[in-house]
Design a binder for these strands. Structure first.
Lengths: 287, 287
DNA sequence: CCCATTGATACCTCACGGGTATCGAAAAAT
DNA sequence: ATTTTTCGATACCCGTGAGGTATCAATGGG
């Protein structure tokens, strides 16, 4: 199976429409149809149900969509890491969510910097879900992930930290005076919905909360009394403009450092090794 | 990057010889040379050092060899799992090392069999290192791996069991009477070397021990007084023809059940779930 | 110094990936 | 019910590029 065939298949499987998929791929529809037929013939497997004029995935097709995406990401990762290895032999790219784990990150980088022959670490602070994607497709060599929001499946990782979560509320809100809250207190608060973050594909799920793409925007919305949110304790607060109340039954959030399996990079190994000596910060509420 | 290019590159990178690689690939040498040049041009990266008449990998080339192998395995896995999903929709393939974890395996299968709508489990008992390889290239959906011998990097897994190791010696050997041994006792025993197992590529490392490919062969060699071995407690003994002595400082051996990341297979998920209820057997020495 | 070895180059061929035109069936519209 | 539109498949053509043979050029062993 060639990666070209995989790309074609994935486009059709996601669009469930040969014409639209062909547009995305910047090609005409007939060769795309033929390529898929040929792929089905070569695999000896029906990937689509073309009953009438609507296209649906078969069971086998769903499997190939899943596995194929992972495989394509692995190929892209191989390309990117190869190119980076040639361009800057002693540099590693670390991806982390902007705004999260600042203290952890600086400690980690400081510890690593003093190891002999430390490589230059290019720190990429990116949006929600991006660190995981960057690690998967080779744009990053190491990433700080937040569990349970990110999914470290397929990577090696070690935990750096674990913390509770707090509610961010507008100052003066009735709940803001409480010493602690539960998640149920915050569900369906009249006039204070929790915002919706983008899905991996950039779209938003249906719902009534405001849509939010970055953290500062979230804090602004809360300040304006239009939303509330549950965030890890260590998230930055931008001053004292919001009320902070612990949420006792929210998931614990773990920060892990993750890297691709089998990474033979000495630099990555040493960075991870120095991460082991980073103290497990228990973020306090009185910062 | 197409998988064809990757296959070509890996062949050359492993042979470090264009002619031999072309033979392996069943093609002529010139188109192979050109394909590699083109790959280097497209990536914008030198993959080989062709100084004079010997070929060597560059740093970037080493990276691509590693990552490319993993990527190719992922593509093959996608193909295989797709084909299996089409052929037998409700069957999963479990790979385990022949002879290991028999009791664990039967308990696991029994527990799973009683879950509602349990899929048929095709149990493949294979040789050393094979379970990991089968899981990696898609021939298996789940595998029982033995740490630290197998390397679960890149998979999801949970531990089923942990046990010590014992020495197997010919009956009547001086050390056979001891209550416990240490690994150093067994190193360089005159006339009783530890055997050599095949490497992943099927070759054997240099050494003076007899070469061994399966477990029964190993037991025979020990019975004949030609070898000794350190094996997990729960390994089968084939009767009482060998002396068994605990080795107190050997690595603990963990049996884990591993599956590919992101596996959305309901059957695999349920098999893993039922594995959680398998009692953590502590194999006793008096079986 | 010669020759064998080995990767690169030159050149040819044809398979195959991709394009346009069109068909046929099925759903939607009237 | 009939027409129209939508959409994947088919037919056919073309050009790129993958692969083959012959040969060159450079390097290292004898």
């Amino acid at each position: 199976m060639e990666t070209r065939e995989l790309r074609y298949f994935i486009a059709v499987a996601e669009e469930l429409h040969f014409g639209n998929a062909a547009d995305l791929l910047q090609m005409a529809q007939p060769p795309l149809s033929r390529a898929i037929q040929q792929l089905e013939r070569r695999l000896g497997v029906a990937l689509f149900d073309r009953s009438g004029r609507n296209v649906a995935l078969t069971i086998a097709g769903e499997v190939l969509l899943d596995e194929g995406k992972a495989a394509l990401a692995a190929v892209r990762a191989a390309e990117r890491r190869t190119q980076r290895a040639a361009a800057t032999p002693t540099q590693i790219v670390l991806a982390a969510k902007a705004g999260a784990s600042n203290e952890l990150l600086t400690t980690l980088l400081d510890r690593y910097a003093i190891t002999p022959a430390a490589a230059h670490v290019d720190v990429q602070l990116v949006g929600v879900g991006e660190p995981e994607r960057m690690l998967r497709d080779g744009r990053a060599d190491v990433a700080l992930l937040l569990l349970p929001f990110d999914e470290p499946a397929g990577f090696d990782f070690t935990q750096l930290n674990s913390e509770g979560q707090v509610a961010l509320l507008p100052i003066g809100h009735p709940l803001a005076k409480r010493k602690r809250l539960s998640t149920s207190d915050l569900e369906a608060l009249p006039g204070l919905p929790q915002p919706r973050w983008p899905e991996p594909d950039g779209s938003f799920l249906e719902g009534d909360g405001p849509t939010v793409r970055d953290y500062v925007q979230l804090l602004q919305l809360i300040g304006l009394g239009r939303a509330c949110a549950i965030v890890p304790e260590s998230s930055p607060r931008l001053g004292n403009s919001l009320a902070v109340v612990p949420v006792h039954d929210a998931d614990m959030v773990a920060t892990v450092i993750a890297w691709p399996p089998h990474s033979r990079s000495r630099a990555v190994a040493e960075l991870v090794a120095s991460s082991a000596s980073v103290p497990k910060i228990q973020a306090s509420l009185t910062d």
